[in-house]
Every structure is written in structure tokens, then in C-alpha cells.
């Protein structure tokens, strides 16, 4: 080579032309291509995403749901049973099933409580306006459930979103959705009683829901 100009502060390995530019580089976020529900469904139809994969679409991101360990599975079963028993025909309990939250979100909540609409859901998945409440049982991904997922549900105007914290044995009740999150997020401890805004007379104790 007839001309060799090494960056002065970086004689060995080089990531970029100067330290300043390198620093700027690292601040650039990867421009992930967001996925729409339509595209996501097409991936499933074409078998690109397999039928047994536990994935959900959260704000354009295809997220792998966590492994269902015994405490998580048990609490989902417990809550499903109690909801069905106490709410009866007042609402449809929709456990581990997809919900259309927006054009870019098709989550697979642990339990959704949707408006009873006869056989309507035979042809149409519940949309956010059908959803009375969503419950996520959270053991290993509390920050995600309280972060990206919470914002997704809030933007979809899901009126009530409960986060069951398996480790703390509490339930965070998120209400009053707005564009950035929920206006009200009281946390009920293990001795408290809780009820959905839509069914104020149907009371559950945190202890029984957590089993």
C-alpha cells in the first residue's frame, strides 16, 4: 500500500475511523423491521412459524413466551378455574389464547377476560374492545410485563391489566389506560381482596388466586 494512515489513538484494532464516530456508532439502535399482525399470520400460515411455537406479537416484535414452569402453570389453572366459577356466563375466560390488540400486536395473554358474545369468537378473535381485562402471571419476566407489555396493553386501551407477581405474591392492578401507560396501578398484597372494575361485586382474595 502506498499510503497508510492509521487513526492516531487506535493503532491496532479499528472499529471505525475515529473514536468520536465509534461512540456515535454504538448509540445507533438496530433498526428492527416491525411485523404486522397480517405478516405474522402469514408466517404462521406458511409454516415459517411452527404450530407449536409459543410466540406472540408485541408492538411489531415477535416474542418467544417464557417456558411454562410449574408455579406459573398452576396459577394460570387456578385463576382460570376461579374466574369461570365466579363469573359464570358474565364473561368468557380466554386462557393462553390470542387476542388482537392492534395492527401490530397479537399477544397470547395468560388469561384474558372477554365479553360474552355467543359464537362470535368462532370466526373472529377477540379485539381490544372485546377485552374486559387481561391477567399476566409473571415470574421470570416481570420487567417485560411491567414495561413493553404494559405499554402495549395501555395503547390498545385494555381497560384493566393485572400483573400477578409470583415471587412477591402480589397483584398489580393497572387501570385508566393512556398512550404511555396506566394512570392507576395499585398493588394488592397477599391478604387483600381484588375485583375487576367490570365486576365490582365479584371478589377474589389474592391468596386464593395465587393458590
Amino acid at each position: 500500500m502506498d499510503t497508510t494512515r492509521q487513526p492516531p489513538d487506535n493503532p491496532g484494532m479499528v472499529k471505525s475511523v475515529s473514536d468520536m464516530e465509534s461512540q456515535i456508532d454504538t448509540q445507533l439502535e438496530t433498526p428492527y423491521r416491525p411485523i404486522s399482525v397480517r405478516e405474522f399470520d402469514k408466517m404462521v400460515d406458511r409454516g415459517i412459524i411452527g404450530p407449536n411455537e409459543r410466540v406472540e406479537l408485541v408492538d411489531g416484535r415477535i416474542v418467544v413466551r417464557e417456558q411454562m414452569n410449574a408455579p406459573h402453570a398452576f396459577i394460570v389453572a387456578q385463576i382460570t378455574r376461579l374466574f369461570m366459577h365466579r363469573l359464570g356466563d358474565g364473561a368468557t375466560v380466554w386462557p393462553q389464547l390470542p387476542v388482537l390488540a392492534s395492527g401490530r400486536s397479537k399477544p397470547l395473554p395468560d388469561i384474558a377476560l372477554v365479553r360474552a358474545r355467543g359464537t362470535h369468537y368462532r370466526r373472529h378473535l377477540p379485539r381490544s374492545e372485546d377485552v374486559l381485562a387481561i391477567v399476566e402471571v409473571s415470574d421470570t419476566r416481570l420487567a417485560f410485563d411491567r414495561g413493553e407489555k404494559l405499554r402495549m396493553y395501555a395503547r390498545a386501551e385494555i381497560q384493566e391489566y393485572w400483573i400477578v407477581d409470583v415471587n412477591a405474591r402480589t397483584i398489580e392492578m393497572c387501570r385508566e389506560p393512556h398512550d404511555l401507560g396506566y394512570g392507576s396501578r395499585p398493588i394488592a398484597g397477599r391478604d387483600a381482596s381484588v375485583a375487576f372494575t367490570a365486576f365490582p361485586d365479584v371478589v377474589f382474595s389474592v391468596g386464593e388466586l395465587l393458590g
Binding site: 408466517m43 406458511r46 416474542v63 419476566r141 420487567a143
Partner: peptide, 24 residues
């Protein structure tokens, strides 16, 4: 903060099938 969720990753084979399926 590091995201604690896991994005679904794709292989080049899956990626090329997406292109063939007209997803993009």
C-alpha cells in the same frame, strides 16, 4: 436496561420463505 424478553430469531431459510410468501 437489557431487555429480558427473547425475540424469535429466523434462519436464512425462513427469511427466504418469507420473501417468497410475499410478506415484504
Amino acid at each position: 436496561m437489557v431487555a429480558e424478553y427473547e425475540r424469535r430469531r429466523f434462519t436464512t431459510d425462513e427469511f427466504n420463505r418469507m420473501a417468497e410468501a410475499g410478506i415484504f
